[in-house]
Amino acid sequence: MTIAADACLGSTTRALSATYDVAMLDLDGVVYLGSEVIDGAASGLAAARARGMRLAYITNNASRPAGEVAAKLRSMGMPALDDEDVVTSAQAVAHLMAEALPAGSSVLLVGGEGLQIPLEERGLRCVASLQDGPVAVVQGFHPDLGWHQLAEASYAIQAGLPWYVSNTDMTVPTPRGMAPGNGSLVQAVRNATGAVPIVAGKPERALFDETIERVGGRRPLMVGDRLDTDIDGALNAGIDSLAVLTGVSDLRALFAAVPGHRPTYVAADLRGLDEEHPAVVVDGAVARCAGAEVAVEGHLLQVRSGGRQDTATLRAAVELAWSMWDRSHISVVPDGTLVS
């Protein structure tokens, strides 16, 4: 295995599932979109599990308890998993708060059951009003959140209470398209208060630390679809990452990623976990990986040989795009057939 420098992808002579001992799997945009399973998710994870790779399902979405998420994953045909294999940003923020606040403290809850349960498991008492004497505010996503809850959080923060949030994802992918995420609601409170919250979810490292504590693993690999949370979070936590193209960040976004914000590996979907990731050779405006070859003409990257969703082709394309930018500040865009 070679680990990527900022300018290049990492490579392996074995499947990723044989190189790393645990996969930290983002959910929305990686395993499923809403109620729909993403193609290749179940088979890719089953193959990785068969090689001995442990699977940890981690999510910034704090709207549902971990057990409910685990039940959903089981119903979707994911490999056998326990409730403890699911780690949420709600669990991570509850851990942070329990360490920082006096035991048994009351906290103003701005969220739903998915946030309330881990807070109570940590011995904290959830209240709905500043008049109930909370010592801190905690905010997490729930689709039923409204103005009154955001306003109550704003009043409490203006009164001097510390403000914790599960995550700051601005959007959440759904089968109908992108919808406002917790970060959009957090921004509304920031607009009202000017305060800056303490964040537990990706890209901060608290969720990664929580996952290792709960699931274990010495050689973790983060698998995600978002450069700004999953990949940046892996970099913040000092672990390698695999970017898949089934959610938020598409190939254009990957091409445009700058040093310090790039994944270690790239694949079309979770089947890339059970594949080798061969080295890429760049020769000017041409790149080759295994049997794949891509080239840049003007600013357009085109495939000369190789399957357009094959990992080797994607690796050659991403490596060449990064090389063109790093060497000449030439922005490259993929032709319309890649990963279509």
Score class of each variant (00 low, 15 high):
residue 86 V to A: 05
residue 274 D to Q: 12
residue 266 V to M: 11
residue 262 R to I: 03
residue 222 M to D: 05
residue 329 H to S: 13
residue 259 P to D: 04
residue 305 S to C: 13
residue 195 A to S: 01
residue 278 P to T: 00
residue 29 G to S: 06
residue 330 I to E: 03
residue 266 V to F: 08
residue 324 M to A: 12
residue 99 E to P: 03
residue 131 Q to K: 15
residue 194 G to H: 03
residue 30 V to G: 06
residue 71 A to R: 14
residue 118 P to F: 08
residue 208 F to L: 10
residue 302 Q to D: 12
residue 26 D to L: 03
residue 187 Q to L: 12
residue 8 C to S: 15
residue 66 A to T: 01
residue 327 R to K: 13
residue 123 G to F: 02
residue 34 G to C: 06
residue 139 Q to G: 02
residue 62 A to R: 12
residue 127 V to G: 06
residue 61 N to T: 13
residue 248 V to Y: 02
residue 73 L to C: 08
residue 42 A to D: 10
residue 137 V to E: 00
residue 178 M to P: 01
residue 307 G to D: 09
residue 222 M to I: 12
residue 301 L to V: 10
residue 196 V to F: 01
residue 279 A to L: 09
residue 221 L to Y: 02
residue 195 A to Y: 01
residue 35 S to A: 15
residue 170 M to L: 14
residue 27 L to A: 03
residue 57 Y to D: 02
residue 202 K to N: 03
residue 174 T to S: 14
residue 2 T to P: 07
residue 133 G to P: 05
residue 222 M to H: 06
residue 203 P to G: 07
residue 267 A to G: 01
residue 208 F to E: 01
residue 247 G to M: 05
residue 15 A to E: 13
residue 22 V to S: 03
residue 79 P to W: 09
residue 231 I to E: 02
residue 116 Q to R: 15
residue 162 P to R: 03
residue 31 V to A: 13
residue 224 G to K: 05
residue 68 E to F: 14
residue 334 P to K: 04
residue 332 V to K: 05
residue 137 V to F: 05
residue 29 G to E: 09
residue 193 T to Y: 06
residue 226 R to T: 13
residue 331 S to E: 11
residue 9 L to V: 00
residue 226 R to L: 07
residue 146 G to T: 07
residue 272 G to S: 06
residue 142 H to A: 14
residue 277 H to S: 06
residue 159 A to R: 07
residue 268 A to P: 09
residue 20 Y to Q: 04
residue 306 G to Y: 08
residue 130 L to G: 09
residue 211 T to G: 09
residue 65 P to D: 05
residue 49 R to Y: 10
residue 242 L to W: 04
residue 224 G to M: 07
residue 208 F to N: 02
residue 38 I to C: 08
residue 218 R to N: 09
residue 122 R to N: 11
residue 281 V to G: 00
residue 23 A to F: 06
residue 112 G to W: 11
residue 80 A to F: 07
residue 298 G to L: 12
residue 171 T to L: 13
residue 336 G to L: 15
residue 169 D to S: 04
residue 99 E to D: 13
residue 229 T to I: 09
residue 173 P to K: 01
residue 292 A to I: 01
residue 16 L to I: 01
residue 261 H to F: 02
residue 218 R to I: 07
residue 52 G to H: 10
residue 129 S to F: 10
residue 176 R to G: 14
residue 240 D to C: 07
residue 16 L to P: 04
residue 131 Q to S: 15
